[in-house]
Design a binder for these strands. Structure first.
Length: 559
RNA sequence: GCGCCCGUAGCUCAGUUGGAUAGAGCGUCGGUCUACGAAACCGAAGGCCACAGGUUCGAAUCCUGUCGGGCGCACCA
C-alpha cells in the first residue's frame, strides 16, 4: 500500500512536472538536433495495489492523454498506445524522421561527434610490453583495445595523449642482453649457452644475426675471454641496448602496420640514470609516506587500500620496479593531465592497489589513476589450449595473426568482445572464418553505399524533401532510428571504456542497412523519395565509416 | 586460504542508472538474384541466462552462498 502510494506520487509528480517522458518529448529532434526517436516505449509505473490507487493501465492512459495534449509532442508523435502494464508505445510522425535525417545530414562527416561539458586531458598508457621479444596476440588485444579507446575518447570530445612505457631497465633486460650475446657468440662457433633464465626463443637468434650483420666479429674475442657472467660488462651492456633498440624498432613498425601509434614513448632508464627514482623516494621519505625498516625502504600503501606496505629500495640497495613506476607516475602527474588511464593485462591486477595507493599519495586524489584490466587471450588449436610464454619462445605472435586474417579482421576480432572477458582464439578457426568475419559484413554495407554513390544519375542530390512518400517504410525508419543512436553510443562507449559497443553497434547498423537496401531503392525511386533516401544512405555511410575508423578498421569503397 | 575477471543457444559472444516474448555471428535445415554489389536478404530448429536462496511490482542484470573456469597474492619485472 505504501508502495502503491509512492508509486502514484511519483507518477503524479512526473505528470505535474512534465517528467521524464514529457521532457524527452519536448527536447525532441528539433531542439537537440538529434532526438530520442528510438525510445518508442518507456516503462512507466509500478503496478498499484488492488484497492484505491489507479491501475498502471489507468495511469498510462492518463499520461497518454496528457502527452497528446502537448503541442510539442503532438507535432512529432502520430499516436501513443498503452501496451501492457507499464508501457506506452509512441508512433512518430513522418516529419519527426525527416527532422532527424536533416539534422544528421547537416553534421556532415562530424555526425555523432561528442562534446564534453568539461573535456578532460587524459593520458592513456597501454601496450607497454617489455622490449625483449615479439608481440603476441595478447599484446595485440591490448593494442587494439587501447587504440580504439584512444580514438573513441577523442571522438567523444576529450583530449588524449597516448603513451608507451618502455621497461628497458632491470634484470629482465639484462637476461635478454645476455641471451642475444650468447646467440651472437654461438653464430661464431663459441660454446656459450643461453642462460637458463634467459630467452630461448628462435627470435633471439634473429636479433643476434642482425647485430652480427651490423658489427661483424667485433665482440667475439672479448666474449671468448670474458664470457657473459658479469652483468655490468661492456658486452652485456652493448647487446642489451642494441637488442632493445631493435625490438623497439620492430614494435613501432608492427604496431604502425596495425594502425596503432603513440604520441610518446617513455623510457624507464633515464628515470634511474637521472636520479629521478631516488628523488621520488627521497621526497616520500621527507613527507613520511616512506620509512626504513629491515634495511629496506618501504612505502606506506596499506592506509590506501593495499594489503601491506611495499618495498621501494631493497636491502641490497637496489630500487624495485615499483619505485621506478612511482617515479614514472610522478612524471605523468607533473605533466598536468586531468586523468590517467593505464591498460594492464590481467596478470597485473594484483599490482593495482599499490599503484593506486602511490598515485593517491602523490596526487592526493584517489580517482586520478584509473587502471583498466584487459583479460587474457587463450589460444586454442583444434580445441586444445596452447600456452604462451615469451621466455620459452612458444607463442602465437601478433604478426602471425595479422598474416592469417589481415589487419581489419584482426582488429575487429580483438575488440568486438568486452575487454574483461577472456577471449578464446582459435587461429585455424579465425583463418577459416575470416571470410565470414563480421567485419566484412560491416565493410560490405559501406561498400554498397559507395556503389550507390558511384551510380547516381545526373542531378540527383541528397536532400530531405517534405513529401508524403518520404520515410514512410519501416525499413527507412529503422535505419533512421539506428543512426540516431550513434551519438549516444559514442558517449556510452567512451564512458564505459567499451570499444566493443561500437563494434556491436556497427554490426547492427550494417544489418539494418542491408535490410533497407533489400527493400528500398535509392536510384530509380521517384525524385523526392530518391533524394531523401540518398540523404539517408549518405548519413549511414558516414556513420559506418566512423565506426570502422574508431576501431582502426578500414572502410573500403569497394571490396 | 585471500583477492580480481568470469559462467547466457552446438561453438564464439552481445545484452550497465533492474523493464515487454533474452539477441547476434558461426554451424545445421529450407527458401530468394531480368533493377543501386547475393561478401546480401527471408524463414526454421536450437535457452531451467551454472546452481540455490534473497531484495523488488519486476532480476541475465543488484546482494549472499555453493559449484566450475581463468588470473594474481615477492626485498621479480
Amino acid at each position: 500500500m505504501k508502495r502503491a502510494e509512492r508509486a502514484c506520487g511519483e507518477g503524479g509528480s512526473r505528470l505535474a512536472r512534465g517528467g521524464r517522458l514529457g521532457r524527452r518529448a519536448r527536447t525532441g529532434p528539433r531542439a537537440s538536433g538529434r532526438g530520442r526517436a528510438r525510445r518508442l516505449r518507456d516503462p512507466l509505473l509500478p503496478a498499484a495495489g488492488r484497492d484505491g490507487p489507479p491501475s498502471p493501465r489507468e495511469l498510462a492512459e492518463a499520461l497518454r492523454e496528457r502527452l497528446l495534449a502537448d503541442d510539442a509532442v503532438a507535432r512529432l508523435v502520430e499516436s501513443v498506445e498503452v501496451a501492457g502494464p507499464g508501457f506506452l508505445n509512441f508512433r512518430l510522425r513522418r516529419q519527426a524522421f525527416a527532422t532527424l535525417v536533416e539534422g544528421m545530414l547537416a553534421e556532415g562527416e562530424e555526425v555523432g561527434r561528442g562534446t564534453q561539458a568539461r573535456p578532460l586531458h587524459i593520458l592513456l598508457e597501454y601496450v607497454s610490453v617489455n622490449p625483449n621479444g615479439p608481440l603476441h596476440v595478447g599484446h595485440g588485444r591490448y593494442a587494439a583495445y587501447g587504440n580504439a579507446l584512444d580514438r573513441i575518447l577523442r571522438f567523444a570530445g576529450h583530449r588524449v595523449t597516448s603513451e608507451f612505457y618502455i621497461n628497458d631497465y632491470g634484470r629482465q633486460m639484462e637476461m635478454f642482453g645476455r641471451s642475444v650475446a650468447a646467440r651472437y657468440g654461438q653464430s661464431f662457433g663459441l660454446d656459450l649457452p643461453v642462460p637458463e633464465e634467459g630467452y630461448q626463443g628462435e627470435y633471439v637468434k634473429e636479433f643476434a644475426a642482425r647485430i652480427r650483420a651490423e658489427v661483424g666479429d667485433q665482440w667475439v674475442e672479448l666474449l671468448a675471454t670474458q664470457g657473459l657472467d658479469d652483468p655490468d660488462s661492456d658486452i652485456v651492456r652493448f647487446f642489451r641496448y642494441r637488442g632493445c633498440d631493435l625490438v623497439l624498432e620492430q614494435f613501432r613498425a608492427e604496431l604502425g602496420g596495425f594502425r596503432v601509434t603513440f604520441d610518446t614513448w617513455f623510457s624507464e632508464t633515464p628515470l634511474h640514470n637521472e636520479g629521478r627514482v631516488q628523488g621520488t623516494i627521497d621526497h616520500l621519505l621527507d613527507t613520511g609516506d616512506a620509512y626504513v625498516k629491515d634495511d629496506a625502504v618501504w612505502l606506506r600503501t596499506s592506509p590506501y587500500g593495499d594489503d601491506k606496505d611495499r618495498v621501494l629500495i631493497r636491502s641490497n640497495e637496489r630500487p624495485t620496479y615499483f619505485a621506478a613506476d612511482i617515479a614514472y607516475h610522478q612524471d605523468k602527474l607533473s605533466r598536468g593531465y586531468d586523468h590517467l588511464i593505464n591498460i594492464w593485462g590481467a596478470d597485473h591486477h594484483g599490482y593495482i592497489p599499490r599503484m593506486k595507493a602511490a598515485v593517491e599519495i602523490l596526487a592526493h586524489d584517489p580517482s586520478m589513476l584509473e587502471v583498466i584490466i584487459g583479460q587474457m587471450v587463450n589460444l586454442l588449436e583444434a580445441g586444445e589450449l596452447r600456452q604462451m610464454s615469451t621466455r620459452s619462445g612458444e607463442m602465437v605472435t601478433l604478426a602471425e595473426l595479422v598474416e592469417a586474417i589481415g589487419v581489419d579482421a584482426a582488429r575487429f576480432f580483438l575488440v568486438m568482445r568486452s575487454h574483461d572477458q577472456t577471449l578464446d582464439l582459435d587461429l585455424d578457426l579465425a583463418r577459416q572464418q575470416s571470410q565470414e568475419n563480421p567485419v566484412y559484413y560491416v565493410q560490405y554495407a559501406h561498400a554498397r553505399i559507395a556503389s550507390i554513390l558511384r551510380n547516381l544519375p545526373k542531378g540527383l542530390e541528397p536532400a530531405v524533401i517534405n513529401h508524403p512518400e518520404v520515410y514512410v517504410t519501416p525499413y527507412e525508419r529503422d535505419l533512421i532510428k539506428s543512426l540516431e543512436e550513434f551519438g549516444g553510443l559514442v558517449l556510452e562507449a567512451a564512458h564505459r571504456r567499451a570499444p566493443h559497443r561500437v563494434a556491436g553497434y556497427a554490426q547492427e547498423l550494417a544489418g539494418v542497412f542491408h535490410v533497407f537496401y533489400k527493400h528500398c531503392r535509392v536510384i530509380g525511386a521517384e525524385p523526392a523519395v530518391a533524394a531523401s533516401r540518398l540523404a539517408l544512405v549518405l548519413v549511414a555511410k558516414r556513420v559506418l565509416a566512423r565506426c570502422l575508423d574508431l576501431l582502426g578498421v578500414s572502410a573500403p569503397e569497394s571490396m
